[in-house]
Write a protein that binds this DNA or RNA. Sequence first.
DNA 1: CAGTGGTCTAGACCACATT
DNA 2: ATGTGGTCTAGACCACTGC
Lengths: 250, 250
Amino acid sequence: MFKVARVDTGDGKLVNMRSSIPVYLRLARTLQERIDSGALPAGSRLPSEPELSAEFGVNRLTIRQAVAELDRAGSVEIRRGIGTFVRAPVTRVSIDVDPLSQRIDLGSMHSREMNGSEKVIAAGPAGSAPDDREAAAHLPGALSRVDTLITIEAEPWAISTYWMPAALLPADLPQETNMVRSLGLDLTYDWRAFSATGADIGDAEHLDVNIGTPLLVREGVSCAPDGQPVLYVRRRIKGDRIRFVLNYRR
Amino acid sequence: MFKVARVDTGDGKLVNMRSSIPVYLRLARTLQERIDSGALPAGSRLPSEPELSAEFGVNRLTIRQAVAELDRAGSVEIRRGIGTFVRAPVTRVSIDVDPLSQRIDLGSMHSREMNGSEKVIAAGPAGSAPDDREAAAHLPGALSRVDTLITIEAEPWAISTYWMPAALLPADLPQETNMVRSLGLDLTYDWRAFSATGADIGDAEHLDVNIGTPLLVREGVSCAPDGQPVLYVRRRIKGDRIRFVLNYRR
DNA sequence: CAGTGGTCTAGACCACATT
DNA sequence: ATGTGGTCTAGACCACTGC
């Protein structure tokens, strides 16, 4: 029923009836419609792969391809050994940020009675990696680089990378730390930027997500009291976790 | 050479030497290392799938699985019928935003001498979809909803969804428009938020990207001069395209 | 035309979670 | 033990690109 329509050209060869849209995509759409229509409500289990394979008359791999699309779209959650389930609409934690001072950060999570920590993954001199080179465009002189993993409630939440003049990196940086505080400077924001990216292999490993998972990127430069830029930070945060809110209401 | 190590248990059965990390992931890492090391510089073509299949002694499908990971990680770009190429580091368009007034938006692209347009995809009353329900939490009364596609230099760039009290939707909304202007109100920002998400099936279709592609989400509520919230906007922007910069320097 | 990546099949076995 | 999703193979054919 969901097979590619084929016609016999007379010489015994079978040719596709070029509906052009591949089966796995039509399948993904069909399943998404069942979700949207309520036939498969949030939390419910999809039929197993062999069941779907039988129902639609296509190979199990084709089914898997369709379900993988729904997974990437965030419509379903695949649990190995158990089944595939319809996701409930995400609710993101909102981080309120004053548009002017911005003095609130992920650190504000601590004040939310959430059990968070920041641990150093790697520290050392910056090299010639693409991101090292970008950092060099924002800060003067030779740079050091520190990578940290922010964990909240025992779950990895974000990866931060800090670049700073080599002289500023504390020699005795503890493995568990609050980077900004450990620099011992009163920093002010120069600029901050928001963008989105997919998890690369390293991100995926540390954050325990699939490669390509959407991440919210927040980066920027901070200045020392004398106005000199001394810190460039790039933070990649699990995209489905968080929302930065800027309030303009007076 | 890259095959799963197996041992004969004596009864003729072969059992995996549980290196536990699947072949396709080890392959992806190997290829990523070749990219990072410069052995495969930006712009260069990877060996074709049959070539990689022969080199590593694994099935072509396993190769494809590895390359697909690199694609999702943004490391390579697959061009059908041509080959797979190492991506250059992305450079994003920076949109400067005054943290206080924020009176700049995607509309600022027009002033950048870029050829942009906003076209209506759909318009009508809001239903009970999850996002419709969220909009209802921000605005009073019965809502209308307008979906638009923002195109710049003939390439789809962003999808916007606007919710507003039904009375406010212009009856003669042109197919090509500037939504905010066509409301004919002097709006001020109540709040704006940034988050990240993966493209769903509809997003992917309109933006011409793969399902799950990271998108930057910018949403918020605007108020009429009398202070009443009258517009809720949610915009999904191709993640690798753009960066919102908030400047704090005085 | 030849070469590239894209889709699909049938079948095997594995890893994980529950019963 | 059973059922779920995860990995891998061998082989076929298709769709697109460039020569």
